[in-house]
């Protein structure tokens, strides 16, 4: 879809500087449109949320296969009903909307049976359930509610996606080695000895390594915001979501 044929709201969103068109605004604007932008946006949204959805369902007592089917079914249901269009940005964050929709979906036996059938017959996404299932089984907080688990998976997923993009970008710029050496400093400020040790490998002074680590943190921070921006409907929400993400990840459950 060329820019000139995009709905007005998409172009409007794209003009918002760093806050570009979000997956959600694209999905909303596209309605039932099957254009490549809309499809990609839907898929991105599903990718960002399927792990939280799966873990929520598992925590609610669903079996492995049931949860797999329900996850596919839930997203199929959203698309089929064009439920994305029902989400009103003015009424709250997309994450909350999704969780509410999921609760209803899980409780709606009839609708679920219909969409599970549909989803089962034509999987929306190729999802690596085994990995997620293993992570679910190793979850250290077996007493956390499905909602808490949903948020934790969502928050970790945002960081993972930001890190993956950072990695990919470093790779593209032939700086993978630098990424590998510096990524640990995302989790902790290095000591002088650690910066010196990494400097040995990267042929840089410890001060330069410290600086590069600082830049990488800046970069990562921007990417996390960008990831969140893709999943919300307005710039103001990004800060809110970031705050929520920090609380979720630093408070355990």
């Amino acid at each position: 879809m060329s820019d000139t044929t995009r709905p007005e709201s998409i172009r409007e969103a794209a003009r918002g500087g760093w806050f570009g068109p979000t997956h959600w605004t694209v999905v909303l604007a596209a309605g039932r449109d099957e254009g490549p932008d809309a499809l990609r946006a839907r898929e991105e949204l599903c990718r960002a949320y399927w792990q939280p959805v799966y873990c929520y369902l598992r925590r609610c007592g669903r079996g492995v296969h049931d949860a797999e089917d329900l996850t596919q079914g839930f997203f199929a249901h959203l698309l089929e009903q064009n439920a994305f269009a029902k989400a009103d940005p003015a009424r709250g964050r997309f994450r909350s909307f999704l969780l509410t929709a999921l609760r209803h979906y899980a409780a709606d036996e009839q609708g679920r049976a219909r969409s599970v059938k549909r989803g089962h017959g034509r999987p929306l996404l190729s999802l690596d359930h085994d990995v997620v299932e293993e992570r679910f089984l190793r979850d250290p907080y077996p007493n956390a509610t499905g909602e808490v688990l949903f948020d934790q998976r969502w928050a970790t997923g945002v960081l993972e996606q930001a890190l993956a993009r950072l990695r990919a970008d470093c790779q593209r710029r032939h700086r993978l080695e630098e990424f590998e050496q510096l990524k640990r400093f995302l989790a902790q400020e290095g000591s002088a000895a650690e910066y010196a040790a990494v400097g040995e490998v990267l042929h840089r002074t410890p001060a330069a390594v410290r600086m590069a680590a600082c830049r990488m943190r800046d970069d990562f921070r921007r990417r996390v915001r960008a990831e969140l921006a893709r999943l919300v409907s307005s710039p103001a929400e990004v800060e809110e979501e970031l705050r929520h993400l920090c609380v979720v990840l630093t408070h355990g459950s």
């Binding site: 970790t156 960081l159 890190l163 990524k183 400093f185 989790a187 902790q188 990840l249 355990g252």
Partner: peptide
């Protein structure tokens, strides 16, 4: 560092809580 649970396969083995504290807060 923080004593929290660490899933070594998530986030390239980095601790999400530590990353959050160091980089985002």
């Amino acid at each position: 560092a923080c004593g929290g649970w660490l899933d070594e396969r998530a986030l390239e083995g980095l601790c999400p809580a530590c990353v959050t504290r160091t980089t985002l807060i």
